[in-house]
Design a protein around this nucleic acid. Structure first.
Lengths: 163, 163
DNA sequence: GGATTTAGTACGTGATACAAACCAAATTAG
DNA sequence: CTAATTTGGTTTGTATCACGTACTAAATCC
């Protein structure tokens, strides 16, 4: 289990915050800021996942399967893993009853992976909590700042995939 | 919950576009934006680390040691790991000649960990490249946006570590 | 000076990740 | 239509990573 990254979760205030929190914060610089932020976010994900007996990787696996039923190879590509890494990952998820393997109709080589009802429910509940926890990270932001951050993050993500 | 670090995600209330550049990017929403961004950043770090035969954890270890010479316990706390996890981590780094263990003068129980010259050089070179790669992620941003993002990230990081 | 706390290690377990070797289905060549 | 090749997955072996538990030795408390 990844008790990962930096911190335990702190209490979360409601995500209302409209008035500027004039907190002066030392600027980490763009690089350190992004790197450290990534650890914070991953830490939160790790925590939420761990609470439900999942690892970040497994959580990601389930997340991908929410609206897809890919083959092993496709799945590996989505997660950026080697195909040989998928076997065990899916094995363990299957053993826990979260995921199912079924042969693909059109191609005898392909094994399609899909969520079981239990898997669906687990990922749904976990997503709700992760959503809340991540949102809590932005508690000190104004709505406008949140919107800015959202947009900027989106640009980076988009830019990184089009390479 | 990452749908996937590299692909579209579920819709979320869009934000009022600020003075965005002409790149129209679908807003992922604050949560998915942050989550996917964290995967992108971690991916870059993992890539850079792997190129030099390191894992992200090891890179982080070396990074912490750049300006510190902590004991094992202190180190564990910095990395958010259990102290029992440190032994192996430091063992492996030591075996590679990147790190050194030395007894602390004032406390016979404490083992201080420090970088070897080789470790210093490796972390230096890796940091340079990581810096470049992370910075490259922001290639589509204006200087002003970069500054904004840097500031926002800093606020989140600060808010998450305090308490 | 003995009890307790603290720092670190040892060991066993489980998850993760990859490479290389391998099998079977599908596709391409000839 | 076979033979060769490509493609999807699994297996196996190795290394890393993280944890909990148990244990040793040095400090500290009373």
């Amino acid at each position: 289990m990844p008790k990962d990254a930096t911190q335990p979760a702190r209490p979360r205030p409601a995500a209302a915050a409209t008035t500027a929190d004039r907190t002066e914060v030392a600027d980490l610089g763009i690089v350190d800021g992004l790197v450290q932020l990534s650890f914070v976010v991953q830490g939160v994900l790790g925590q939420v996942a761990t609470e439900r007996g999942l690892s970040v990787v497994q959580l990601r696996l389930l997340g991908v399967l929410r609206d897809r039923t890919p083959g092993m190879r496709e799945l590996a590509q989505h997660l950026g893993l080697d195909k040989s890494s998928m076997t065990g990952l899916v094995d363990r998820a299957e053993r826990r009853g979260l995921v199912r393997r079924s042969p693909a109709p059109h191609d005898g080589r392909v094994i399609q992976v899909s969520l079981t009802p239990a898997g669906h429910e687990l990922v749904r509940a976990t997503a709700v909590e992760a959503d809340r926890e991540i949102l809590a990270l932005t508690a000190h932001l104004t709505d406008e700042q949140r919107a800015q951050l959202s947009q900027l993050a989106s640009v980076l993500v988009a830019g990184s995939t089009v390479l």
